[in-house]
């Protein structure tokens, strides 16, 4: 298991995409900080944390699509699927990759945001750092969940294009809007309960908001677990 993770992490850090995506992210961050400073003079650390853009989730999703899709596309999966002691390790390792990429991106975001905020704002308030860290923890899990959805689509359907499309649609909240509309129609027709708010189960409901961390945590863990189980089932049962 540890060996598969080592191999995946080595591969990850050799991929140019990880650095290109983060450079884009830093540039975006710089511009955001500059523009925000035009309207405000003080920035809090929690404000910085809760301002993590959709771009982060999108990049995590795209990176994981690139990562897992390349294994199938260039046939590398055939090199490792026969040698690992258990194919479960292939999927569990992807959770680690998704987590490492997310954590790196969040660290880059936070560090550069603080630096740019110190440059452009008059004051940066670090008082509510604990709340900020809690929020970042949940965001990390939500991004891992999105990455694992991409892994699930590629392993179960062997369709890289579908994974990219779904990742973009989920992270840009298009799917959430679509399902919300559909749910409203079903509620109007009295097919489903009026009391249940379907947006509670959307990953994206917890992006860029100060929503309940616990709910976000539960939703992320459920998505990670379900995606992983489906991926493990697919990688074990489907021929490669």
């Amino acid at each position: 298991m540890l060996n598969v993770i080592k191999g995946d992490l080595y591969k990850m850090f050799r991929m140019k995409a990880i650095w290109i995506l983060n450079i884009i992210y830093v540039v975006y961050n710089f511009l955001t900080c500059y523009l925000l400073s035009e309207f405000d003079e003080i920035r809090t650390i929690y404000g910085i944390a809760s301002n993590i853009p959709t771009l982060l989730s999108l990049f995590v999703g795209i990176f994981m699509c690139l990562f897992i899709n390349s294994e199938y596309k260039n046939g590398y999966i055939k090199n490792i699927a026969g040698i690992v002691t258990d194919k479960i390790h292939i999927i569990l390792s992807k959770i680690v990759v998704s987590a490492v990429f997310t954590v790196i991106s969040i660290i880059i975001y936070m560090v550069t945001s603080v630096i740019f905020s110190l440059m452009f704002f008059k004051l940066v308030d670090f008082d509510n750092i604990v709340e900020a860290l809690a929020y970042l923890g949940v965001m990390t899990l939500l991004c891992i969940a999105l990455g694992m959805i991409a892994v699930m689509i590629v392993t179960a359907f062997r369709n890289g294009a579908l994974a990219y499309i779904m990742t973009v649609l989920i992270s840009t909240q298009f799917i959430a809007v679509l399902l919300n509309g559909l749910w409203t129609i079903l509620q109007y027709k009295e097919i489903v309960s009026e009391n249940f708010d379907i947006s509670l189960i959307f990953l994206t409901n917890y992006f860029n908001t100060e929503a309940d961390n616990l709910k976000g945590f539960i939703v992320a863990v459920v998505y990670i677990a379900v995606s992983s189980v489906i991926s493990i089932f697919a990688v074990k049962k489907k021929d490669i």
Binding site: N3, V4, K6, G7, D8, Y10, K11, R14, K16, S70, E71, N74, G75, Y76, I77, K78, N79, I80, I83, V84
Partner: peptide, 23 residues
């Protein structure tokens, strides 16, 4: 099997190292 599963943008050493670490 079928084709060597290699990453075209990486060097031969890197490709070998990935599989080596995985093993």
């Amino acid at each position: 099997i079928e084709a060597p599963g290699i990453y075209p943008k990486l060097s031969a050493v890197d490709n070998m190292q990935i599989k080596s670490l995985t093993m």
